[in-house]
Amino acid sequence: MNGLAELAHTLAPGLLYPTGGAILFAMGLYGLIRRHHLVLRILALNIMGSGVFMVLLGVAARGEGPPDPVAQALTLTGIVVAVSATAFALALVVHLTRLTGHAVMLPGPPDDDAPVEDISREEHHADGGPAAPHPDQDRNP
């Protein structure tokens, strides 16, 4: 029992956390594909990024001795870049909402011919109810 615990302990930070990071990355990827609201997509990207950080730090903490400071420094710069990129992306979402009236990336092929006014009108139509599908949103292509 104690030997098992020792084994698990030596494995834990080095294997458990990178595995968790990989799961987070995959989950963020899944959310990024499936969700349409841009704020949720930004959250999904952040979760993917956190997964990457967790893999990096987990691998850095492997083995004997103190963890690898280079990987930790890399993660530190990564976190600051991630928060700046998130802030910029959120500013873009706000700007997009101001221009088009919605912050949702619609599924289906992009409608290049539609001028901005039309997009806002469609959005207005779609506001009949949250459950009502967008007119250009083909559920069964």
Partner: peptide, 30 residues
Amino acid sequence: SFFPALIFALVVGSLLVTALWHQPQSTGLE
């Protein structure tokens, strides 16, 4: 969009996990 996304995420995730479990132990640049 459920199955394509799920399969894609599962493939990427399991590739990552496999790669990480096979990565050799090292102390890195410490």
